[in-house]
Design a protein around this nucleic acid. Sequence first.
DNA 1: GTGAAAGCGCTAACAA
DNA 2: TTGTTAGCGCTTTCAC
Lengths: 347, 347
Amino acid sequence: MNIKQIAKAAGVSVATVSRVMNHPENVAPKTRDKILKIMEEEEYKPNWFAQGLNFNKTKTIGLVIPHMLNSMYMEIAKGVEDVAQQKGYITFMCNVEKDTEIEKNYIEQLLTRRVDGIILMFSSLDEKFIKSVEEQDVPVVLIGEDRCAKGFNTVKVNCRIGAENMVYQLIENGHDSIGILYGNDPQQETQDMLEGYKNVLKENDMDISDEYIKLVENTIEGGYLGAKKMMASGAPRAIFTTSDEIAYGAMDAIKDSGLKVPEDIAVAGFGNARMSNLVEPKLTTVELPFHKMGVYGARLLFDLIESEDKEDNTENQAKEEPRQIILQTKLRIRKSCGHKERIGEMF
Amino acid sequence: MNIKQIAKAAGVSVATVSRVMNHPENVAPKTRDKILKIMEEEEYKPNWFAQGLNFNKTKTIGLVIPHMLNSMYMEIAKGVEDVAQQKGYITFMCNVEKDTEIEKNYIEQLLTRRVDGIILMFSSLDEKFIKSVEEQDVPVVLIGEDRCAKGFNTVKVNCRIGAENMVYQLIENGHDSIGILYGNDPQQETQDMLEGYKNVLKENDMDISDEYIKLVENTIEGGYLGAKKMMASGAPRAIFTTSDEIAYGAMDAIKDSGLKVPEDIAVAGFGNARMSNLVEPKLTTVELPFHKMGVYGARLLFDLIESEDKEDNTENQAKEEPRQIILQTKLRIRKSCGHKERIGEMF
DNA sequence: GTGAAAGCGCTAACAA
DNA sequence: TTGTTAGCGCTTTCAC
């Protein structure tokens, strides 16, 4: 069923049918209703391609996700999707498995399909590639990594401050020696956190000892091995980790050594993964505003898409300043950090 | 950059340029190479809409997901995506939050965008609606629910046999009374499991007592309350639950009552959720082949898409029989069920 | 082996 | 208020 057939059935021209879809106010109510009724009856749906050929807009955005099975990423994705849906957009979610080649491929696909904008989460892409995407007049928003912040629209979290708050909290709790197990995954963020850790120790005149600073794989196993190693050289009173996964492993290792969390060694993670209030003891951690990151990222993208639409008209091609949104973290004090009052907390 | 400009630059007609893309064998090697070179230089990408207008194919499928933050669904999704990507397709992932209205909306969107096929996971849609989608010549595959199996292409898991195996295992482990906490969520599947539970008890001449059969909410809290209630009337030696979430709650309740898992009461769940080997004690459970479900579902869909393409040519419109794929579960014996040898297993 | 031209389904400028 | 018609960028048939 196409526009021609509808027009014929209604005894009007295709232009009139087209009008009721795009400028209904310019059609006589009577003819309009008649046409609408026929459209309804015939379950007419305008041809997507034909419309696209004219409008060059798809009401579609692309969202690149590092890893679909990681619930943190999916929470961000949900934030994006929530606002996209509300805006009447639909989202291509692309799982790139942290593989740069796959990521590039997907982005090619997205461009081919003429998405109106792209959101990259913790992208591994180089600056040049991303620039080349923007040059095709497809707005890009980066969520997460600060790596490319120069020149790109970005939503990020201030992990340094989050780490500082956490370490400060551990000190508050009376722990006089604090180790850190840091991952290698979101490069910049982890470095920020390490920096935050050191800052607070310095401020409090505590020793910064290499024995207590260990680079590990950002996995449960990595945390297990790292904690074992750290304990081998005299355990600290508390261990801060740059991800909840690492913390799980660390807790396992501590228990395996016959010690107790938090009585012997307190543990604090980062990320507030879903299971962190299900492990025993419940994990104290830094909560990232994942959903918000998605929401703000999407809003930013739609701002860009809409402002681009306007620019098209005015031919005002002065490249705007990239925008940056920085969100803050929140402490989730639970049993594992040895906080006195929260030690019996349920959720 | 469009085909016309490429043609001009190469000094040929648009037809020739089009040919090098679609039937390169019909173009003289010399002209072909020349054109390819120019395309390369100009980074020419054929216009998606114009191509679609001619081919009426999008190399795109839709995947409807009940809930993005549930890792089980995401594993299925990943299975789908894996084969889609390999086939050169891209996937619209639609998160419908278990809301029928949203689901319908999304499907409308997918149809508008002319996806080549749709996969529905644990869909809440009525038979009629799904039929109406198929009538628009868009193949549909259902993953999960058996509810609509009559008439629809389906990939499902035999939960009854999974439950039977688990209960049988519990008996093997020496537990002479076994209770069940069953949820209400995937209706049909839960009923199947309940049936399996009863089957095995009957086969083994064990009592089937209402005291030991409790309907609960499919959540951690539901499991907690259900187990408490069950224990109030004399606890069984083992509790089987129709989801891991229920099992977590049950374990909590048992511990709260001063009893031990598995020494006093063994627990077994269903689903093998990610955290099931992180809880203490690690949860014995029935593993569902989530990833496989996605893979088989996608393969089935592409079969349908491809066979539909052929049918188009032959005008052979004899509606095929719906296909059904049934996958089997697998036991994950861990500490919580009191199995002697596995009691110290790490993962 | 190549080109001219019709047509895919729709939008919008222009005419009436 | 409505109709006519020229595109949008591409594919393909039919000539040559």
